[in-house]
């Protein structure tokens, strides 16, 4: 980032923060909807924004763009939200019925829910949040090639799960 001048001791402008995060709100909301029940997604996003505001001094643009940083905070808030209440065993499968299309692909949602954590995370970020590979890699803290391999494995596993579900 070029950084115009230095304002180490500036009083922050909440409006500017709001304008800064605004382009990323759709991605944050999508990710929250993948991680928690639909009814809690907005709360998770707002809690994440408050946390991002309070931790904004830790954001270093030299380490990556804003979206992965914000998404990581959303993931953290979602984890905290889940620990506050009972954990449903088929979180995404059931909530696919209350978030997303009126006729969800229930088989696909259930198969995605059965993926190992990292594979599910890659699928959520790439397909449902709509990030590109590089941004997924930043969010997951790995190399782009690893993301591609993880997605490859996830699709192979989904293929097997969906094939099994046809029996």
């Amino acid at each position: 980032m070029t950084g115009v001048g230095r304002h180490t001791h500036d009083m922050p402008d909440a409006a500017a923060f709001g304008a800064w995060v605004a382009p990323h709100l759709p991605a944050l909301s999508r990710y929250a909807h993948r991680l928690v029940p639909a009814a809690a997604a907005d709360d998770v996003v707002q809690e994440a924004l408050v946390r991002a505001w309070s931790r904004r001094a830790t954001y270093d643009p030299a380490r990556g763009s804003a979206a992965p940083w914000l998404l990581a905070i959303v993931a953290d808030q979602a984890r905290r939200h889940r620990t506050r209440g009972p954990r449903p065993t088929t979180l995404l499968a059931d909530d696919a019925l209350t978030a997303g299309p009126t006729e969800p692909d229930v088989d696909l949602e259930r198969a995605v829910a059965r993926l190992p954590h990292r594979q599910r995370q890659a699928v959520d970020l790439y397909y449902f949040v709509g990030l590109d590979i590089a941004s997924v890699a930043q969010t997951m803290g790995c190399a782009p090639g690893t993301v591609q391999a993880t997605l490859h494995q996830a699709r192979a596993r989904l293929r097997a799960l969906l094939g099994d579900s046809d029996d």
């Binding site: 009083m11 500017a16 605004a22 505001w53 643009p61």
Partner: peptide, 24 residues
């Protein structure tokens, strides 16, 4: 998506490491 909360508490820290500031 929800709106950004309007009741964000004010603090003295700026954006980014080394306080690059809002204007940037």
């Amino acid at each position: 998506p929800p709106a950004v909360p309007t009741d964000l508490p004010t603090h003295s820290a700026g954006f980014g490491r080394r306080g690059r500031g809002v204007v940037g």
